[in-house]
């Protein structure tokens, strides 16, 4: 039996238009239901923390908390800074600076991952870019991997003293968050 013959009105313009309107309405109704799961206004407002660096001596590190993430802050020794600077960026698995303070795709030199005049300080989001574990290397006795930076125990990613990926499955360098020195011994993250 032919549906057309039976219900000639099904393809009527008005019916089609009505159904189309219902469909569009239902689709737009989805928006608030999806949006509600995004970070809310109060979460987004918790955007900055201040960290006092004065107690951190050369060679020491502290971990701060920002947006629920660990922030690695290390006061690097001269040797560590030099080791980080004397790397040919082209040989790195990820040659991007991954620095949110810089506008675009800068090369991943150590200078591009630190702030001028404060080169001994490295500030990183302490989350392995592989699958989100927290690398070792902050505490004194931690294994730091063969490049003296950080070592992720989950899958063996090795980062250098600039937080760049050197070996292992992680695809990217550790991110440098937005931060600035408010005084010589204080930074504001975010």
């Amino acid at each position: 039996m032919s549906t057309e013959a039976l219900e000639p009105n099904r393809r009527d313009f008005l019916v089609v238009a009505g159904n189309a309107f219902v469909a569009v309405g239902a689709a737009s109704l989805l928006w608030p239901f999806i949006q509600q799961m995004n970070p809310d206004a109060s979460t987004m407002a918790l955007s900055s923390v201040e960290v006092d660096l004065s107690p951190v001596k050369e060679g020491q590190a502290i971990t701060a908390m920002w947006r629920g993430k660990p922030i690695f802050i290390r006061n690097r020794t001269k040797a560590e800074v030099e080791a980080a600077e004397n790397v040919d960026v082209k040989t790195l698995p990820d040659d991007n600076a991954r620095n949110e303070n810089l506008p675009g795709d800068e090369p991943g030199t150590d200078a591009n991952r630190t702030i001028k005049g404060h080169e001994n300080w490295i500030v990183l989001i302490g989350i392995c870019t592989h699958l989100g574990c927290i690398p070792k290397g902050q505490a004194m006795g931690d294994e730091r991997g063969e490049y003296g930076g950080w070592f992720c125990p989950c899958h063996g990613s090795v980062y250098d003293t600039s937080g760049r990926i050197r070996k292992g499955p992680a695809p990217r360098n550790l991110e440098v968050p937005t931060y600035a020195f408010t005084t010589d011994t204080k930074i504001k993250i975010g």
């Binding site: 009105n9 099904r10 009527d12 238009a17 009505g18 309107f21 219902v22 309405g25």
Partner: peptide, 19 residues
Amino acid sequence: LYLIVTTGLLYLGKKRIWK
């Protein structure tokens, strides 16, 4: 406004179907 227009369209469509 969306609901009023859609209700109107659905009503006209319904009238067609039940013609």
